[in-house]
Design a binder for these strands. Structure first.
Length: 508
RNA sequence: GGCGAUUUAGUGUAGUGGCCUAGCACGCCGCCCUCUCACGGCGGAAACCCGGGUUCGAGUCCCGGAUUCGCUACCA
């Protein structure tokens, strides 16, 4: 019996969405779209202590920017709501009671201090079948005492009663069958009376079941608790509709060890967040891919290939192509080190595909940031300037470095090039060159080049020296597009002014 | 420590017993193009974790070890 594919991305609003989380969301989305299923966004805000204002809005904005569409969620609505766990208290309470009633869970009064003491006394202390008999819980205390404590408002938690000695099998779509013995699992806290909220484990299972989730696609860090989840499905009597589990390999730090964390980004010089994030508490700013000049398509493409491949050598794929080809058969199992250099290359590729006019629009804010008013130039001029240098950029921002001379005359000249290419007869030759250019009927690059090269040879000048001195005068250094393309775009007067200024300033 | 996962060049990966003298991409190096820097084209260096098996034949299967990562909270 094939169930309708329904997947969920379930972040907790404890901060900005991390790039690893983005990839998890992406894989969920790709899988859902691939199979004509539904993509649910569920906000898991059961940790009242760690709630961060603005985080939920950030998640929505980030997913929207990347083009990861949501079918059901807090904003989108849907038939399985509410989609925010803090609004589902009644549901959880009811389900906790079910477990309590059928003896699958029990009430525990041990305080955090008592638990700490137990852990201190016993090196490998675990709250389970071997120890629960010595703790303060509804299994060891008389029923009327338990009732009295609760009526007194004593804080308690509900723990899952794990039967030891059983091999629990988790069937993972990427890793195959993973078996863990229930004896190594502890009696997980399912619910805390202190804030009347469930923990992740309970809320997760209840919601996935009620929302008819067919595939749980999440990070590998959840693999160890997957057996617990299997047991929970059984305890509720939902084993036959239990979702398929898929545990994705983690995104690792590019240098040493461990999974990519929030701190790594700015430490290593690349963003770990899709969007820039301003921490409301510390005021700290973390950089984001969007602000850094990444195209969302590039980020998506890059992320998709970190842990998955289409089965052949294809690398550049649109969202639709990713959807068409996505499958867990081609997911890798080991964690992937985050390779920022490759990410740059993807952005470079996508930038090349962008129409020049669009790129020019993206460039305008960068111009402004550097004190140049785009309105001082025609759109056509900016577009053509951008088109000339775009092949050498990885980011929109890089456009400034490569095209600035089109907008601002050089103030100084690269010393090395001046030394190499500028001699005392350079001013005269350059003036001769300008006269020659001026006499030309058109500055069309092909013709101009032909004429000038012919002239250089005729006069016996050194091609490299003349052209590079010319370049230094106009650009400021020895780099950039072909000189005659530059000349045509800038026009004779602007070029001539720069040549005169250079002659004045360099004075060999 | 316990439990689980994991393991192909620096990085991401292809590879499902012979087509592997291991392919692709990023990065790196060189050459070409050339007025410069890039782009592009061409080429190069660079990997099957180790040890045992099974087999005519193993990167691919089995066993052991090691590695790395994750989990081990009234966080997710």
């Amino acid at each position: 019996m094939e169930r309708k594919v329904r997947v969920r991305f379930a972040p907790s609003p404890t901060g900005p969405l991390h790039i690893g989380g983005v990839r998890t969301a992406l894989y969920n989305y790709l899988f859902a779209r691939r199979h004509g299923g539904d993509m649910i966004l569920r906000i898991e805000d059961t940790d009242s202590q760690r709630f961060v204002p603005g985080a939920e809005a950030y998640i929505n904005e980030a997913l929207a920017w990347l083009g990861i569409g949501i079918d059901e969620g807090v904003k989108e609505g849907g038939a399985y709501g509410p989609y925010k766990q803090s609004e589902r208290r009644d549901i959880y309470r009811e389900h906790v009671k079910m477990l309590l009633d059928n003896g699958k869970a029990y009430i525990a009064f041990d305080t955090p201090e008592e638990l700490e003491a137990a852990r201190a006394a016993q090196p490998n202390f675990q709250y389970d079948a071997s120890t629960r008999g010595n703790m303060r819980n509804s299994l060891t205390m008389p029923a009327d005492e338990v009732k009295r404590l609760i009526d007194n408002g004593e804080k308690y938690v509900v723990r899952f009663k794990i039967e030891p000695g059983r091999d629990v099998v988790v069937n993972d779509l990427i890793r195959g069958k993973v078996t863990i013995n229930s004896s190594v699992l502890d009696d997980k806290v399912l619910y805390k009376s202190a804030d009347d909220l469930p923990t992740y484990h309970l809320a997760n299972i209840v919601d996935d079941h009620l929302m008819e989730v067919s595939h749980v696609i999440r990070g590998e860090e959840w693999l160890p608790s997957a057996p617990l989840h299997v047991l929970l499905y059984e305890a509720f009597g939902w084993a036959d509709t239990m979702p398929q589990f898929v545990h994705l390999p983690l995104l690792l730090k590019p240098d040493g060890k461990g999974k990519l964390s929030k701190r790594d980004g700015d430490r290593l010089g690349f963003p770990v967040f899709p969007l820039e994030w301003h921490d409301p508490k510390s005021g700290e700013i973390s950089s984001g891919y969007r602000e850094r000049g990444y195209l969302p398509e590039a980020v998506v493409n890059f992320l998709a290939l970190l842990g998955w491949n289409p089965g052949d050598d294809t690398e550049i794929m649109s969202m639709q192509e990713l959807i068409d080809r996505f499958s867990f058969d081609h997911c890798s199992r080991a964690g992937a080190k985050f390779d920022f250099e490759k990410g740059k290359w993807f952005n470079h590729k996508y930038l090349q595909e962008l129409p020049d006019a669009e790129l020019a629009e993206l460039f305008k804010p960068v111009m402004k940031a550097h004190g140049v008013n785009p309105d001082d130039f025609s759109d056509d001029y900016i577009i053509r300037a951008v088109a000339m240098v775009k092949s050498r950029i990885n980011f929109v921002e890089d456009l400034w470095e490569h095209a600035r001379f089109f907008f601002v005359a050089p103030e100084e000249y690269e010393a090395k090039s001046v030394k190499k290419r500028w001699s005392e007869d350079t001013p005269a030759i350059l003036r001769e060159l300008m006269a020659r250019l001026k006499a030309l009927p058109s500055l069309e690059p092909k013709g101009a080049e032909e004429d000038i090269i012919g002239w250089i040879q005729e006069r016996g000048y050194h091609m490299g020296n003349v052209m590079n001195a010319f370049r230094v005068a106009v650009v400021g250094e020895c780099k950039g597009p072909h000189m005659f393309d530059i000349v045509e775009l800038m026009g004779f007067d602007a070029v001539n002014d720069r040549v005169e200024a250079a002659i004045e300033r360099i004075k060999a």
